[in-house]
């Protein structure tokens, strides 16, 4: 694998392979020495042009567990605030001899631009680009669902027939997009629930069903319910009247959570707005996989860094 830019590029075999390698990486975390020498001598640059805590820390932990050197760059307090372009920043980083660039950027398509630009030779891993994609989040969500359903027997399995409902701010959500492409590629049936203003205009061309009624979605007993964060920072105009109305119609309140099927797991990519899209009763319950998602994120990112940084010709054996 040369780059990881989008889950749309992944076929089912490749996706299952990444999840399976992540299983092996998760086993490593349980050992006395939770570290592998695999990427000794490689350098990974974390380029974060947009705020992030968990994704940045997760990539950093993943690279370090594989013995890579990590250099982290945040746009705040850097030359970007002096007006440096993505190209100049990338070339500066490349001149320092980086093997991989983990890029988070507010512009959709930034990672693809960097990978296809010829500015740098390094492998590019998309860690979130605008409202486009966040592929490692999609992968870790798929991993978390598979792990919760199949436990130790997860290896080699896809998500055939698994019913996943994604709720909330779909239009601004790169997490939703990465999940829609990946989960459907893996065979899952994905449905979306959102206010009409927060569904993308091109929803008809997506391989999903869409509705506005969370109570009906809960009554349909999905295998997994993914609550998305309300992204106040991307809401430039009134997408819904106010937070209380959003919470009442589309939030997983304690009362709704009580109606949820006992086998339905609850996911949230974090950071959570407690009391808005998710209640503490749901977030802290045994059916919540929120903390598993964080743990699994490190395993997934180890698998991805291994795949883009090993091999001599970008092809796979």
């Amino acid at each position: 694998m040369r780059h990881l830019l989008s889950t749309r590029d992944l076929d089912r075999t490749t996706a299952v392979r990444i999840l399976d390698i992540a299983e092996d990486m998760a086993d490593v975390a349980q050992r006395a020495v939770p570290k592998l020498p695999t990427l000794r001598g490689k350098t990974v640059a974390n380029l974060f042009f947009e705020d992030s805590t968990r994704t940045r820390l997760s990539f950093e932990a993943a690279a370090k567990r594989l013995s890579a050197e990590v250099i982290t760059f945040s746009a705040k307090g850097s030359s970007v605030s002096k007006g440096e372009s993505l190209k100049d920043t990338a070339q500066t980083i490349a001149a320092m001899g980086m093997d991989a660039v983990v890029l988070r950027h507010s512009a959709s398509g930034a990672a693809a631009t960097l990978a296809g630009s010829g500015w740098i030779d390094a492998a590019v891993v998309n860690a979130g680009d605008g409202t486009h994609e966040h592929p490692t989040q999609g992968l870790l969500d798929a991993y978390s669902i598979r792990k919760r359903l199949h436990g130790a027997a997860s290896r080699g399995r896809d998500l055939d027939g698994v019913r996943v409902t994604i709720v909330g701010d779909i239009v601004h959500s790169r997490v939703a997009r990465s999940n829609v492409w990946l989960l459907t590629t893996l065979g899952a049936e994905v449905s979306l629930v959102a206010p009409a203003t927060l569904l993308p205009g091109a929803i008809d061309s997506w391989p999903v069903t869409a509705s506005h009624d969370l109570d009906a979605a809960i009554a349909a007993k999905p295998d997994a319910l993914m609550m998305l964060r309300v992204q106040a920072e991307r809401m430039t105009s009134g997408f819904f009247p106010n937070e209380r109305e959003y919470a009442r119609e589309w939030g997983l309140s304690a009362e709704r959570f009580a109606r949820l099927d006992a086998d339905t797991m609850v996911l949230h990519p974090g950071p959570m707005n407690r009391g808005l899209e998710i209640s503490s009763a749901a977030a802290d319950s045994a059916r919540s996989v929120v903390l598993d998602q964080v743990t699994n994120g490190v395993s997934i990112r180890m698998a991805v860094l291994y795949l883009v940084l090993s091999g001599n010709d970008g092809t796979d054996a």
């Binding site: 399976d20 299983e23 092996d24 020498p37 090993s310 091999g311 001599n312 796979d316």
Partner: peptide, 21 residues
């Protein structure tokens, strides 16, 4: 015992898929 992640020739071959240990 899978040894893929400990190999010294990962850059000389196509990417290997590790097996469970």
């Amino acid at each position: 015992l899978d040894v893929t992640m400990y190999r010294d020739d990962l850059d000389r071959h196509p990417t290997r898929t590790p097996r469970p240990t």
